[in-house]
Amino acid sequence: MRLVLSFSAGGLFGLGLFLSGMTDTRKVQGWLDIFGNWDPTLAFVMGGAIIPMAIAWQLTRGRRPLVGGSFPTPPRQELDRRLVIGSVLFGMGWGLAGLCPGPAMASLSYGGTGGIVFMIAMAAGMIAAPPVVQRLDHTAAKA
């Protein structure tokens, strides 16, 4: 059951990314390109995704997940260096190529060699992250 739900969620996510045009780097870079031919599509995708998701968060109240266990705890509210530094690095890479992790995976079957190269580089970045995080946490604790 857990795996069927997981596969279905991934499938809906991937299909949504494909149909919305978010695996096309031109549309993503078009949204970020405020000095060029600006493309507002990404805002519609975000809005369209946030509505069902907000309803889902409401439905978690007083319930348990279908497979049992518990829902995620409320998010922390404080900002830290990790959030800011990580988001800046991510945004730079996102602007450079127009791909983020979801669309990179969703377009793997039709993204050609470039898409595969991106995936490998992204995986390398992800594997390299824990030591960097440790360092950031360490220097933050000392300061």
Binding site: L83, F90, G93, V132, L136
Partner: peptide, 13 residues
């Protein structure tokens, strides 16, 4: 470069 930045940045953030 973009892939490395996206992988590193998303995991740090």
């Amino acid at each position: 470069i973009a892939g490395l930045l996206v992988g590193l940045g998303t995991r740090i953030a």
